[in-house]
Design a protein around this nucleic acid. Structure first.
Lengths: 145, 145
DNA sequence: CAGTATCCCTACCGATACTG
DNA sequence: CAGTATCGGTAGGGATACTG
């Protein structure tokens, strides 16, 4: 398990100055909750119960119709899948194509930006996987103490 | 604006097979909502209203006492800051040191894992910043259409 | 098939008051 | 100073019924 050094901001020495400036910018932006903040926005979008799952499902299958996606995810309700997909579509992460047929056919797939989002999520997932044992042990310790 | 290619999973050609395997593992893990899933867990932790802000504040200042952190964040209530910090402490992202003094002094700082989490958040923030214009324009289009 | 509409319930969050 | 305790509001989410 690679351990970051114990300086406050820990990156390669020569990048730390710029990174620290960047950090303050992001912090300031996040602090003003009246203005819109990209990080909070993106996190908020993927943090609801079904968005991440929808993105991963579309990422693995490429294109899915509404009911196929619903079946793939499992226990999502019709209502919540609709809401989730509309939100993802609104922000440009998912595209929705309607075919004028009877019965209707609607196909969903990730946009390029949606695939980028999925990559970000997968990076986070990799990190989270490596940290999992530490998190679990920390929780146990917390309960006892 | 760098555009990912239009294959389903887009990374360097030679990494794509392993990455795709990885993706399915993560998807399967995320689908079973009864078991604990590292990604969902971590996202859930940073997606509440004050966690990310607390992490960034501690990241820029190193160590902060309760009221200093409260002042730094701005409009967080005492209750919510306490709840937030306890959650972060429970998962091992923040350490809490109590000094047996009168009046009491309590110091918070990021653990190594907490700094790692901040780095992950900053990466996501960088990406989110570059995507912001596209997201905004997508929202506008959505409203009109 | 792919959605709306409605109702209800729970989790998160804020304000206020109190305390070791 | 650094917290708890209590209450009440709001947004997310589920079940069910209905529809172009």
């Amino acid at each position: 398990m690679s351990k970051p050094s114990n300086t406050v901001v820990t990156i390669a020495e020569n990048e730390s100055v710029e990174e620290e400036k960047n950090l303050k910018l992001i912090l300031d932006r996040a602090k003003d909750q009246s203005k819109l903040c990209p990080v909070r926005d993106v996190i908020h979008r993927i943090s609801d119960k079904w968005s991440l799952l929808s993105i991963l499902a579309l990422g693995t299958h490429g294109t899915l119709r509404f009911n196929a996606l619903k079946k793939e995810i499992g226990d999502v309700s019709q209502r919540m899948l609709t809401v989730t997909l509309r939100n993802l579509e609104e922000d440009g992460f998912v595209s929705r194509k309607i075919y004028a047929e009877v019965p209707p056919r609607v196909e969903y797939q990730l946009t390029d930006m949606g695939q980028g989002l999925m990559q970000q999520a997968l990076q986070l997932a990799d990190w989270a996987n490596t940290q999992l044992p530490a998190i679990i042990s920390s929780r146990k310790k917390f309960k006892k103490g």
